[in-house]
Design a binder for these strands. Structure first.
Lengths: 344, 344
DNA sequence: CTGAAAGCGCTTACAG
DNA sequence: CTGAAAGCGCTTACAG
């Protein structure tokens, strides 16, 4: 309350300088200070200079909280995400935060954990801080809370979700096509005993990859051994691979629905069963995480269009897309490496 | 300005309900609404119930921006960080954001890129949004801007920085001890031609690891081949390893100052020179990233005390540490795996 | 326990 | 181009 009383005596006030103080020092009005920090506002070069000098002297920084209260936007964009440490998501966050910042936004990260309900809790924070937009990178919000976001004027963008909530923008990746390509790659190369490894987490993306891979194999008259379990992580791939290769009819080709899983499968094949890759076992992953390119894996996979997704999200957030439908499906291009033979 | 005029006619107002509206609907004062959302405020169960009912009906969410304006804190904690996609940093962000949220804070991530000056730009944002605290995980801020943060009452915590700016809290890891341990491990096992691989980025941590490794080897009467270059990444390790193993006097033990580098070195040894690890070449890394535990690497390394660091940071941010010196050096425990022999 | 009032730090018509 | 004034949505002594 009296935070700035006694200001004159204090050597170094532990508090922020206000526009009021800057105005006083510069000998102009409070409004002039405001204008000096508003691009495009009408202010003479002279008073602007005076304001800037005073601001520098006082160490003044516009309070964006107060500004957000007046303007209809705060500049805050929320990222709702779980498993931040995961290679794919961390690169998405990396590039998303970069382009968002370049667009003048500031990003708030809400770690939604893996527990259910955490997404909704995050969305509530989003509302509390009056975010201009929120990008849901993992998990699915309940309709009611999502509706609240929409009602309050927030832009809500969901990544890889099935349920098209009206008012929401849905971005996704062409999982079906990639899964079909994976199956055909195996079949054409001459692999005969196909398998699929996926986690126990049934996100729409993973489910789509699984189903399309199975469908394509079936159309070609092939059975597919399916291993499903655990988290979407290396360990699950290692375990799944181990169980598959230990079975009576071990596969010679496995599509792992994620690179993390694929690395585990590959290590199981190579280190636990001494199988050569791609000669005895072909492996295909999905995501093109950095490790997929490392010499020990050199995984054939599909690249997440991280850059395209980020750019599109920013365009939506920055209001660059209006009236044209913002929903979009991005391609995940095949990245050829050496974990699957071209021809056996 | 007239955002809520015409509210009665609108089917669904695209705007936020205010405490004022909640008060009207609940038949209480504006203050009562405020109290209903302030833990510990004096309010009767009866009026609280009325307020909650009205709030639910209107979809009211306290505006934390306005709240932050009045209280002396915003609840915002900024993370200034570069290379977010990197395994070590992404796990630090993962656990930091989790514990911070559990402590009732909200985290803003400022991607400082790798360019110089970006840290200062980030710190300026920190000031604009009146963050309660900011944690600098990468890079070094200029004194002047750091001083501004301190002056404005922000808590400023720096990770692994050398320059102890007064007023700032400095957290670091015992790099010296780890590097010494690495050298001794090699020497005791019987490795004879030591090498060190580090990046061209001279952060205090990397420099300390390098210097202490070299000093320990020197004390034992050993020369160390040093490769230094590139970013702190797998590719640099691969290149460094390749050049070292191709030299006239190739090493039989290399300490890579980071796991990412170590993975590259190990792949160079194994895949480009057919050297067996740990029999012909021993490799030690630092960080204990997830990949260090993967079967293809199984890297002996030192674990970043991510959890301890996070917990300590949160205690400082939440005000749990007062008057006692908050600076701290954490140990990075050795993680024994199979990339270095116990005895050749 | 409760309400009226002042105030946080800003922006933006409005009138000059 | 400029200043006085109203208002954004909240909290918190103050007085009852």
């Amino acid at each position: 309350m009296t935070k700035n009383k006694g200001y004159e005596e204090a050597v170094r006030p532990v508090a922020f300088a206000s526009a009021q103080e800057v105005a006083r020092l510069a000998g102009v009005s409070r409004s002039a200070v405001s204008r000096a920090f508003t691009p495009g506002a009408s202010i003479s070069p002279d008073t602007r200079a005076k304001v800037e000098a005073a601001a520098a002297e006082l160490g003044y920084h516009v309070n964006h909280l107060a500004r957000g209260l007046m303007r209809q936007q705060t500049g805050i964009v929320c990222l709702v995400v779980a498993d931040i440490h995961t290679p794919y998501l961390s690169s998405l966050i990396e590039t998303l935060s970069r382009v968002l910042q370049e667009a003048g936004k500031v990003v708030m990260v809400l770690n939604a954990g893996r527990a259910s309900g955490r997404v909704d809790e995050a969305l509530r924070q989003t509302l509390n801080y009056r975010a201009d937009a929120t990008l849901v990178l993992s998990g699915t919000p309940y309709r009611s809370i999502a509706q609240s976001c929409l009602d309050s004027g927030q832009r809500l963008i969901l990544l890889n979700r099935d349920d098209h909530l009206p008012g929401t923008v849905n971005l996704s990746v062409d999982n079906a096509r990639a899964a079909r390509t994976a199956a055909n790659l195996f079949l054409r190369a001459g692999y005969r005993r196909l398998a699929l490894v996926t986690s126990g987490i049934g996100t729409p993306s993973l489910t789509a990859r699984r189903d399309c891979f199975l469908a394509t194999a079936r159309e070609a008259g092939r059975q597919v051994a399916v291993w499903e379990g655990g988290a979407t992580a290396y360990e699950s791939g290692l375990q799944g691979g181990t169980e598959l290769f230990a079975s009576d009819d071990p596969p010679d080709a496995v599509f792992a629905v994620t690179d993390l899983l694929a690395c585990g499968v590959l290590d199981a094949a190579r280190h636990r069963f001494g199988r050569s890759v791609p000669g005895e076992v072909g492996v295909i992953g999905f995501d093109d995480i950095e490790q997929a390119g490392w010499a020990s894996y050199d995984l054939t996979t599909f690249a997440q269009p991280v850059s395209d997704i980020s750019q599109w999200m920013v365009r939506i957030v920055a209001g660059g897309i209006v009236d044209e439908p913002a929903d979009r499906v991005f391609e995940a291009p095949l990245v050829w490496r050496s974990s699957v033979a071209r021809q056996l």
